[in-house]
Design a protein around this nucleic acid. Structure first.
Lengths: 190, 190
DNA sequence: TTATATATTAAGCGACTGCTCAACATATGT
DNA sequence: ACATATGTTGAGCAGTCGCTTAATATATAA
């Protein structure tokens, strides 16, 4: 990779990183491309050399979020092992206030108001419904008696909501210790 | 109350109601006072007869949210009874997609990005930290052995995060049944 | 070195924003 | 009926927005 291409990719990531923070703090419409450019130390026009529009910047983040926040669905794992891995994976990225942990908050916000921003982003998120994708594991666990009875989707949504909700709180507060993974699993366990 | 005053209060509530929906969907900066006025069937100027600014409208909603979403802390209740009442109260308002249930989502968003909007709103929310206020109940429950061990604040935050997170998901999806209250309490129970 | 492609800037356009204000309509109190 | 206070409008102001574009600097390839 040439020097030029290297700087290109670096700038692109830098813009995404700054945008992520701004989108969380000020929302899509409150985020100004001028401010992002200023913070990145480039002219406002150059922004549009890297991303054709503010919307494309937002959608790029949603796409990255969909990729990064997907869990590799283990092949035919035991249900409780599957959900335990989910929690462990979350706790691992939550310990560092990095790109991924801010992405968690961003995606939570996007799930609520992407419809008011971009139909494409809304559909990406909808197609990436981790709670719905985990329903089979819930059902399997209920059959074997290790997961409590009740509507599987609702149970799954509650499990991921608790992770999502805690992640949102975590970014705002620094007086929080990390929960034990058993606390999350208690929602599911029979 | 005269006919005039009656209409005044009605309009004021109507504006708040429309604003609530817009703030959730488009965020503070994406919400236009003109659009709110249009949806309320009044001129854009009249908006500012009822609320002196868009910010005051936002802060009014935060203030209402702080009032409505506060639970009457029962005097010396048993810890598990206290948290059970919290869940029951949430489930009661979650069953209707009304003002209160949208307010739930609004306050969740406000907790994240009020700092980027209004210092006053941010402090109102901070002063209304239900999770922190519930810590004594957690500690009491841990002493009597009915609540699991672990950092009390973290435990409390996780409990309320699960409620908050589920409420946020509930407004977006209509294919969800309501969880059993035991599912939430399982997070706390020893 | 020269030619070509890319990086970068800054000015500026049209649209939209929150909000004000002079003007007019309506309702209330006497 | 008249006076006064309140309700209501819509044009308009100053500012910001996303984005374009002509011009220029810089890096790469020949």
């Amino acid at each position: 990779m040439t020097k030029k291409e290297e700087q290109y990719e670096l700038r692109k990531y830098q813009i995404l990183d700054i945008s992520l923070t701004h989108f969380i703090r000020y929302g899509f419409y409150g985020t100004s491309t001028r401010k992002i450019a200023e913070e990145a130390g480039i002219s406002s026009g150059l922004m549009f050399h890297y991303f054709p529009s503010k919307l494309s910047l937002y959608e790029a983040l949603v796409e990255i979020g969909c990729e990064k926040l997907t869990i590799a669905s283990g092949e035919n794992e035991l249900p409780l092992v599957f959900f335990e891995k989910q929690v462990e994976w979350f706790l691992a990225i939550a310990t560092r206030n990095n790109f991924a942990s801010r992405m968690f908050v961003f995606m939570g916000l996007a799930a609520i108001n992407a419809k008011g921003i971009s139909e494409r982003a809304a559909q990406m998120i909808k197609a990436h419904d981790v709670a719905a994708m985990s329903v089979p594991y819930i059902e399997k666990g209920q059959e074997s008696g290790v997961i409590r009875e009740g509507d599987p989707l609702t149970l799954s949504v509650l499990f991921y909501s608790s992770i999502q909700g805690f992640a949102e709180t975590l970014v705002e507060r620094n007086d929080l210790k990390l929960p034990d993974k058993e606390w999350f699993l208690a929602i599911l366990k029979a």
